[in-house]
Structures are given as C-alpha cells and as structure tokens.
Amino acid sequence: MAEVAHAEHYTSTGIDHRKVLMWLFLGSECLFFGSLIATYQVYRGQSLVGPHPHEIFNIAYTSISAFVLLMSSLTMALAVNSIRLGNLPATRVWLLLTALQGSIFVGGQVFEFTTFVAHGLSLQVNLFGTTFFVLTGFHGAHVTVGIIMLFSLLFASVLGRLGPAQALTVEIVGLYWHFVDIVWIVIFTVVYLLPY
C-alpha cells in the first residue's frame, strides 16, 4: 500500500505540490516577519524607561550564536546533497549536526532572554522589551519547530523510512531551515548591529 502512496501524480507546473506549498508558506512568512520587523523599527528608540538595547546587548555573544545558525545552513545543504546522492550515513550526520547547531542557537537565546529578564527587561516594561521579545521569540519558536522536524527525519532514518526516495522531504525541511536562517540574518543586523 505504501508504494501506491508514492505513485506518480500529475502536476501542471512540473514541480511537486509539496515543494510549491512550502515556497508559498515561506512567502507568507516573509510578510509575517516583515510586519514584526516593521513594528520593531517603528518603536525603535521610543522607550521612555530602560533597560535600553545598548545597556544589555552582548554583541560578541550574539555574533557567535548567529554564526552557529548560519553554519547550520551549510550542514543542512550538505544533508540535502547527501540524500540526493544516496549517502544515508552522511545524511544522518549532517542532519544531526544541523539539529545540534539549532539547539545551541535556541539554548543561547534562552540564556540571553534569561539574562535580559534578570536586567529588568520584560514584555511589559517598555516598547523595546515588547517588540524585541515578540520578534525574537517568534523566530526562536520557528527554529524550535525546525529542530523537531530535523529530529523527526533522523528518527525516520533510524526506522529505515528515510532514503533517496524521500530526498524531496529532506529538501522541503531544508527550505524551512534555511528560511529561519535568513530571517535571523535580517534580525541580527536590524536589531543588534544597526546603531541606535
């Protein structure tokens, strides 16, 4: 019965429906994060009370965290490359490395949030806290969903359900993962690096 599910199907575009759907979803996500970034920018520097960004940001720490997420895009691309070539052991290694780098990023974000809260920043305290936590929090949630997807792929491979025939599934998860990376590229610049 499983073979029936993987039978050829018609597509008017020549592109698998799932892949088109993922790109459509990522397009909608551009608008979602665009609105959050716009809100952050509109209220940038408008807080009447502290803590203010320059008082609590640790750029060196966040740079390392951003670099880890950036390099996870490399390992994700290598995972897609490996599964296409039918190299399942390499695919597992790259998927695991990607998931671990994502976990390091999320762990780093949790530590950063905890530190900021200890410095008095919260969702309610000022406009910076509200816009910062909502923007970066939603991004962190997206990364967490990506990590769950990656571990699901690893679990499927352990069960023998991931092979070259599922290359498209790995590619689609990869598209999502790269997207969370490019969103952070923008957030890192706009929120952390641009002068206040």
Binding site: H6, E8, H9, G14, R84, L85, Q166, A167, L168
Partner: peptide, 21 residues
C-alpha cells in the same frame, strides 16, 4: 519541467534533476 514526475525521489527537479556533488 516535466509534466509528470515521481512524487518522491526526484526532489521536484530543482535540486535532484542531476546528481552533482
């Protein structure tokens, strides 16, 4: 841009059309 393709295995042609490392 084929009209029909394998649902799984060809990676939607964007990536998997040719097996370059």
């Amino acid at each position: 841009r084929p009209v029909r393709h394998q649902a799984a295995g060809e990676a939607g042609k964007g990536v998997g059309a040719e097996l370059h490392d």
